[in-house]
Design a protein around this nucleic acid. Structure first.
Length: 792
DNA sequence: CCTTCTCGGGG
DNA sequence: GTGTACGAGAAGG
C-alpha cells in the first residue's frame, strides 16, 4: 500500500521501541504505521592494538537485562576518509544508548564511540531513507482502530518503506492556525498571573474566535481542545507559538487542571522537543515565525509587518492593537468586538503566511529528514548537518561526534574599494554558486586535507593560495554531497521546463530546488562553524583564498579586454556594460579559470560614495535598488530612512539636487513643528546579549532596562524600540522605550542632527551640498515668514 | 581625541 | 549557535 508519511516518532511498548509513522493513505484517511522491528545502535572504534574479539566479549558483559545488548557486529567503515574497523553495538531501548556509551567509552581498548547521539526516530529516517512529506510503498497488516491513537486505522509495518519515485503530489492536508490573547495589565504577560482572554482559529473551512466573559480561562482552554480535536488538523500553525502561545497554554492548562492533549495520542500533552519546537504527537506544529525570520526585507518581524510586506493581510485592512493595551479592549465591553477582530486577523495572517512558507519547509524536511515542525526551528547549521548525515550513511562514512571548540576566525572574502561617483550602464557579474564550485573543483574537505606531517604526492594534491593542500582522490565527502545537490537541482530545473507553471507539481518541485540551493550554499559556512561535526577551519580558509584569487584573476582578464571594473564583492564584479566585451569576459573566465559567471543585473545609473558595501542604483526597468545605506537598515529611524530613499530617488531620476534639498528642508520643518508620527522616530535595535554581559550601556540597553522596571519583559534576542527625549547627559540616558513616552518630550533636534541630516548628507555631501544649506534659515526662514503672513 | 563596544545588512 | 568584511554611532577612557 502507498502512504504519504509526514512525521516519524517512536514510543516504548512492552519494554520495546516501536517506530510510529504518521501518514495519510490514498483514500485520504489519517493512519498510523507502526514498525516494531527497528533497534537502536552505536559504533565503537577500538584502539589500534586492541583484540577485537576480546573487546566484543568485554562489551557484552556490560549488557543489562532492562535493555540487553542484542548484537555486536564487526564492520568496515570510513571515518574522515580513513578505512577503519568498528563494532556496531545494538541494544533494545533508545534511552539506554547513552549509558552504554558512557560505560563503553571507559574501556581502555576503546578509542571512541560514535553515533550514539543520533535520535532514534532520526536514525530510522536515515537508515530507511524515508523522504518525509512524500509517498512510500509499504507492506502492512491492519491492526484496526486503537483507542490510544486518534487515527482511522493502525497498521503494523512488515517491510521497509520505499519512496515512490515521481509521485510528486500532496494529499489534501487539514490546516489550522490559532492565536491567543492574554490579559496583561502590568508589563509582559506571565502565565501564572494572566489568563487567556481570547482564542482565534482559522482553517480553510471556518474562522472563529471565542472571547472570555470572565477571568477564568478554563472554559476557553476546553473550547480550544475540543475544536482542535473536532477538526483534527494535520498541520497546526501559530506565530511565535513555540516561544509564547504553547508554553502559555500548557501552563494555564496546568493551573486550571485541564488536559490539553490536542495531539493524536490520547492523554499526551504538547511538549518541547529538539531545537525548542513544541511537539504535538501525530500533527505538525509549525511556528510560522521561524520562516518569517528569513524575510530579511522586513526589519521588525511582527506578524502584521510580515503579512503586510508579503501582501497577505495589509495593515490598513486589519485591526492592530499595541500589546500593552490589549487588556483595555477586554475590560471595556464595548471594545470587545475590536479585540475579537484583532485576534482573528492575527490567526488569519498566520494561516495565510503559512500557505507561502510551508511548501518550502516541506521540501527542506524532505531533504534533511527533519520533520516539518523541527526543520523550521533548527538553524541552518543543523539543517546542513542532517543532510550530511544522510549522505554519510549512504557512503558508509561515520558521523563525527560534536566537539566543544573555541571559535577560530580566519580571513574571508575580498571587497574592492568602489570608484566613487555616478556611473552609467553598469553590469553586475555574479559567479554561480562560487563557494560550492570551489569546494567541488579542489576536492575540499576534512577527509582530503593533508595534515601537518602527513605524506603526500605533490602531483596528486591541489594547493590553495595560502598553502593548504587537498588530495585529488578519492572524492571528498563534501564534494559528494555538493555534486549530488547541484545535480539534483539541475534535474529538477530540467523537469520544471516540461511542467505547467500553474500545476501543483511545478510548485512542489520549484520549492524543492530552492531548498536544494539553500543547503548547497550553506556548506561553506558550515565548515567554518566551530560546533559543526565536520568542522574544518583550514577548509573554510582555503575556500575563501581560492575565491579571492578567482576574483583577482577575473579583474585582470577584464582589464586585458579594456573593461573598466567599478566594484566587486566576494563573488561579484561590477563592470562598465559594453555588451561585446562583457560577453567576451564571461567566455574568458569560463575558459581560463573554469568558472561560470552570469549577468545578474544591469544598472542604468549607479551611485557610490567611497564606502564599500554601500551603493544605490536605478535598474533598467526603473526600479531603485539601495544596498547598505541607512535607508535599508533597521537601526535608523523611519523618518531618516524615508528621507534618504527619496533623496536617492530624486537624484537618480532628476539628475540634480534641487528637488532633493527642498524635500529634506520640508521634512526638517515638519519635524520642528511636531508633525511627524512618533512611530517614524522609533529606532529599533536587538539585545544581542544578556543584560549582565554588556560592558557598556548603549541606548537600547538603557531603554530596555527602563521598560523592565515597568514589568515589561526584555531578554536576549528581543528588539527594543526607543526614542530620544529632550534633556542633558549621555544620549543613552535620554533613550526611552517608545511606548512609554509622550510625544511632546521628544528631542526633535536629535532627529534632525543625528538622523535626518546624516542620512541625507551621506548622498548629498557627494554633490557638494553642505549641512548648513539643509538646515540653514535662508530657505526655511522665508517659508516660515510666508506662511505666517498667509495665516494672517 | 582615540579606542572599544555594539549592531545590522548583505555578498 | 553557518562563515567573514564592513561602516557607523556612541560609550569609555
Amino acid at each position: 500500500m502507498k502512504f504519504y508519511i509526514f512525521d516519524v516518532s517512536y514510543e516504548v511498548e512492552m519494554h520495546k521501541p516501536v517506530i510510529l509513522m504518521w501518514s495519510i493513505d490514498e483514500k485520504g484517511r489519517r493512519v498510523l504505521l507502526k514498525d516494531p522491528r527497528f533497534r537502536p545502535y552505536f559504533y565503537v572504534i577500538p584502539m589500534n592494538e586492541a583484540d577485537i574479539d576480546d573487546l566484543k566479549r568485554k562489551i557484552l558483559t556490560l549488557s543489562k537485562p532492562k535493555s540487553p545488548i542484542i548484537s555486536i557486529d564487526i564492520q568496515k567503515k570510513k571515518f574522515i576518509g580513513k578505512e577503519i574497523t568498528v563494532l556496531r553495538v545494538t541494544t533494545v531501548l533508545p534511552e539506554s544508548v547513552r549509558s552504554y556509551r558512557e560505560e563503553v567509552k571507559k574501556l581502555k581498548e576503546v578509542k571512541d564511540v560514535l553515533e550514539a547521539d543520533i535520535r532514534f526516530a532520526m536514525r530510522y529516517i536515515i537508515d530507511k531513507d524515508i523522504k518525509l512529506n512524500s509517498w512510500h510503498e509499504v507492506e502492512v497488516r491492519s491492526k484496526g482502530r486503537d483507542p490510544k491513537y486518534r487515527v482511522e486505522e493502525v497498521f503494523e509495518v512488515l517491510s521497509d518503506p520505499k519512496a515512490v519515485e515521481g509521485k510528486d503530489e500532496k494529499p489534501k492536508l487539514r490546516q489550522l492556525a490559532f492565536d491567543i490573547e492574554v490579559y496583561n495589565k502590568d508589563g509582559a504577560p506571565k502565565a501564572e498571573r494572566d489568563p487567556i482572554i481570547s482564542i482565534a482559529l482559522v482553517s480553510e473551512d471556518f474562522k472563529e474566535v471565542k472571547i472570555a466573559d470572565n477571568k477564568n480561562d478554563r472554559e476557553l482552554l476546553l473550547y480550544f481542545r475540543k475544536r482542535v480535536l473536532d477538526y483534527d488538523p494535520d498541520l497546526v500553525y501559530g506565530y511565535n507559538c513555540n516561544k509564547f502561545d504553547w508554553p502559555f497554554i500548557i501552563e494555564r492548562a496546568k493551573l486550571n487542571g485541564v488536559s490539553i492533549d490536542v495531539g493524536r495520542k490520547v492523554g499526551v500533552p504538547p511538549s518541547t522537543g529538539a531545537y525548542g519546537h513544541v511537539s504535538l504527537p501525530g500533527r505538525l506544529n509549525v511556528d510560522v515565525y521561524d520562516f518569517a525570520k528569513d524575510v530579511y526585507e522586513v526589519k521588525v518581524k511582527t506578524l502584521e509587518n510580515v503579512a503586510d510586506y508579503l501582501g497577505v493581510v495589509k495593515k490598513d485592512e486589519r485591526v492592530i492593537i499595541p500589546g500593552h493595551e490589549i487588556y483595555k479592549y477586554w475590560e471595556d465591553p464595548s471594545k470587545r468586538e475590536i479585540l475579537k477582530k484583532y485576534n482573528l486577523d492575527d490567526a488569519l495572517s498566520t494561516f495565510l503566511l503559512a500557505q507561502l512558507f510551508v511548501p518550502f519547509g516541506e521540501q527542506l524536511s524532505y531533504l534533511t529528514g527533519l520533520p516539518l515542525d523541527q526543520v523550521g526551528a533548527a538553524s541552518v547549521g543543523f539543517k546542513v548537518e542532517w543532510y550530511l548525515i544522510r549522505v554519510a550513511y549512504k557512503v558508509d562514512e561515520l558521523v563525527p561526534n560534536r566537539v566543544e571548540r573555541r571559535a577560530q576566525s580566519y580571513k574571508g572574502a575580498i571587497v574592492l574599494r568602489p570608484r566613487r561617483g555616478v556611473h552609467e550602464n553598469v553590469a553586475v557579474l555574479d559567479f554561480s554558486s562560487m563557494y560550492p564550485n570551489i569546494m567541488i573543483k579542489y576536492n575540499v574537505g576534512p577527509d582530503t586535507l593533508v595534515r601537518p606531517g602527513e605524506k603526500y604526492d605533490p602531483d596528486e594534491v591541489y594547493v590553495s593560495p595560502i598553502g593548504h593542500m587537498f588530495k585529488k582522490k578519492p572524492d571528498a565527502f563534501f564534494k559528494i554531497s555538493l555534486t549530488q545537490l547541484l545535480k539534483m537541482r539541475k534535474e529538477i530545473k530540467e523537469k520544471l521546463k516540461s511542467l505547467d507553471p500553474e500545476s501543483p507539481q511545478y510548485k512542489l518541485l520549484d520549492e524543492r530546488q530552492k531548498a536544494v540551493k539553500v543547503l548547497a550554499n550553506a556548506h561553506y559556512g558550515y565548515m567554518g562553524w566551530s560546533h559543526a561535526r565536520w568542522y574544518c577551519k583550514e577548509c573554510a580558509e582555503a575556500v575563501t583564498a581560492w575565491g579571492r584569487e578567482l576574483i583577482l584573476k577575473s579583474i585582470e582578464l577584464a582589464r586585458s579586454l579594456g573593461l573598466e571594473v567599478i566594484y566587486g564583492d566576494t563573488d561579484s564584479l561590477f563592470v562598465r556594460y559594453d555588451k561585446e566585451k562583457v560577453e567576451k569576459l564571461i567566455k574568458l573566465i569560463q575558459e581560463k579559470l573554469g568558472f561560470e559567471v552570469k549577468i545578474d543585473k544591469i544598472y542604468k545609473k549607479l551611485f557610490f560614495t567611497e564606502a564599500k558595501k554601500r551603493y544605490a542604483g536605478i535598474l533598467e526597468d526603473g526600479r531603485i535598488d539601495i544596498v547598505g545605506f541607512e535607508a535599508v537598515r533597521g537601526d535608523w529611524a523611519e523618518v531618516a530612512k524615508e528621507v534618504q530613499e527619496k533623496v536617492i530617488e530624486l537624484i537618480l531620476k532628476e539628475g540634480n539636487t534641487d528637488e532633493a534639498i527642498k524635500y529634506v528642508k520640508d521634512v526638517i520643518e515638519k519635524l520642528r513643528k511636531g508633525e511627524i508620527d512618533i512611530e517614524k522616530l522609533v529606532i529599533w535595535k536587538t539585545l544581542e546579549k544578556d543584560f549582565s554581559e554588556y560592558k557598556t550601556e548603549p541606548p537600547h540597553v538603557v531603554a530596555a532596562k527602563r521598560a523592565r522596571l515597568k514589568g515589561y519583559e526584555f531578554k536576549k534576542g528581543d528588539k527594543v524600540g526607543y526614542v530620544i527625549v529632550r534633556g542633558s547627559g549621555k544620549l543613552a540616558q535620554r533613550a526611552w522605550p517608545w511606548f512609554m513616552v509622550d510625544k511632546s518630550k521628544i528631542d526633535v533636534n536629535y532627529y534632525i542632527d543625528h538622523q535626518v541630516i546624516p542620512a541625507a548628507m551621506r548622498i548629498l555631501g557627494y554633490f557638494g551640498i553642505t549641512e548648513t544649506s539643509l538646515k540653514g534659515m535662508e530657505g526655511g526662514l522665508w517659508t516660515f515668514l510666508r506662511k505666517k503672513s498667509r495665516g494672517r
